[in-house]
Design a protein around this nucleic acid. Structure first.
Length: 416
RNA sequence: GCGCCGGUCGAAUAGCGGCUAUUUCAGGAGACUGUAAAUCUCCCGCCUUCGGGCAUCGUUGGUUCGAGUCCAACCCGGCGCA
């Protein structure tokens, strides 16, 4: 893997560049489409490619549980198995320490939101309360994480070494060190503890990765050595000193790039990311894990992030929320029943060039599967091209102008 | 005409003497950020200062401390017999 910076954003940390992987180039900043289980839900790889996606990210834990990394490997590796010829990433399973741990059965999100209006106190009260009969499915120890399968309750243990071995078998171009994604509800003491543990796990992840590279070089004499790249993950929650410390520690290790993980204040992603990116070596790519929404990209990119992944576009598509330049809309809203025009008149996506919002709304209402596909195509196209447009604006030196005009328009407005 | 069933919030249902009438669907709105997610939450008779208030189980009477629930008559609907 090779990373090249093509242009920097003057006076800021942002940059446009390219990541060269064994399966192709990623022009950055770039949105990496999430395909957790080696499939972008409701879509064929051709559809994903045609809408402009450059790379996909799958998940180690899910593929380990089903079908098992051996099957992925025997199927020719992730690319061949899922028929995606472009660059791929795998997440380490570290996020599941959070989503199946403290967050399981609750409404805790990795992003803490600003105080909601006193308007809905009742809803606030119910927040973060674990539903009965839903014990956590992840338990963290020094050596790793004990997971209970969300599928059948069976126990599984992930150590940094194990995560790397599985990721090696799955065979993505870029893999992540095993980390612990912490909750925004955790106090500083815990964040520090978890961060230090993540640093120890980073060392172990990197060591195991190098061992596997050597093994693969030995076993395939004469063949090109494994070019799988590994990114270390920065943690530290919402605390400036911890974030800087983590970036310093992880950044000084011999990773090919970096992931920025963990929890953030929704309002202040840009600041948190800038703490980190000022510390990380400039010449290596930085992936902001699990972000984001349209507003997030501008803040993260101008503060030095290169790639992103997020389930929001596809999940929200399936759940009936669509992105537009005027904000998000709910496809189930009664007012769209007879909206006989594309979701967005000027959208170039396959969905908008062939179908009306009224038709997709009808499909969604009647639970037709095509609703998921058409909505996912639109949302992914929107997000992928938004990030691509931001990249162009860096190259054209029109970043601020583009940022301001986009954010001004991105307001939730009535579409009647 | 006789007999037997049955009429519960848009639909379908539960409830068979005890106070707040159940559930599902439909309908309305919202949430979702490294996917436990084609998921989840709220509302869905009327009014409300969001605390609650007032109605309501075909209709009208009755029995009872208390009736959707028991009784009677009537009105609808279905089935059967004439």
């Amino acid at each position: 893997m090779k990373f090249t910076i093509e242009k920097k954003l003057s006076g800021k940390l942002g940059r446009a560049g390219k990541i060269e992987t064994p399966h192709g180039i990623i022009n950055t900043p770039a949105f990496i489409v999430v395909g957790t289980k080696a499939t972008v839900k409701a879509m064929t790889p051709e559809q994903v490619k045609d809408l402009g996606a450059q790379a996909v990210l799958a998940n180690t834990y899910h593929l380990y549980l089903e079908p098992g990394e051996k099957i992925v490997k025997n199927g020719g590796g992730l690319h061949k198995f899922m028929n995606w010829s472009g660059p791929t990433f795998t997440d380490s399973g570290g996020f599941q320490a959070f989503s199946l741990g403290v967050a399981f059965g609750t409404t805790i999100s990795k992003l803490s939101k600003p105080q909601s209006n006193s308007f809905d106190e009742r809803e606030k009260k119910s927040e973060s309360v674990r539903s009965e009969g839903m014990p956590p499915l992840a338990k963290i120890t020094e050596d790793g994480v004990i997971f209970k399968s969300y599928r059948d309750g069976s126990e599984h243990f992930f150590s940094p070494e194990k995560s790397i071995e599985i990721q090696n078998s799955i065979g993505a171009d870029i893999i992540f060190a095993f980390d612990e994604c912490t909750s925004p509800t955790a106090d500083k003491k815990y964040q520090k503890e978890a961060m230090d543990r993540t640093h120890r796990w980073a060392t172990r992840s990197l060591a195991r990765h190098r061992e596997l590279q050597v093994e693969s070089t030995k076993s395939k004499v004469g063949e090109k050595k494994s070019e799988q790249a590994i990114f270390g993950v920065v943690q530290g929650g919402r605390f400036e000193d911890l974030r800087k410390e983590s970036a310093g520690v992880i950044g000084s290790m011999d990773f090919d790039g970096f992931g920025i993980g963990g929890s953030f204040d929704k309002e202040d992603i840009g600041t948190a990311v800038s703490w980190v990116n000022k510390e990380l070596p400039e010449g290596k790519p930085r992936h902001l894990l699990g972000i984001g929404e349209p507003e997030d990209f501008f803040l993260a990119i101008e503060n030095g992030c290169d790639t992103f992944d997020c389930v929001a576009p596809t999940r929200q598509a399936r759940n009936g929320t669509l992105y537009t330049k005027q904000g998000k809309i709910h496809i189930d809203n009664a007012k769209y029943r007879e909206y006989f025009a594309p979701i967005e008149a000027d959208c170039m996506c396959y969905t908008c060039s062939h179908y009306t919002l009224a038709y997709i709304a009808y499909l969604a209402r009647t639970k037709e599967l095509l609703a998921h596909t058409l909505s996912s195509i639109h949302n992914l196209h929107f997000i992928v091209h938004l990030v691509e447009d931001i990249r162009q604006s860096i190259l054209n030196e029109t970043f601020d102008k583009f940022k301001n005009s986009f954010l001004e328009g991105y307001r939730k407005t009535e579409k009647n």
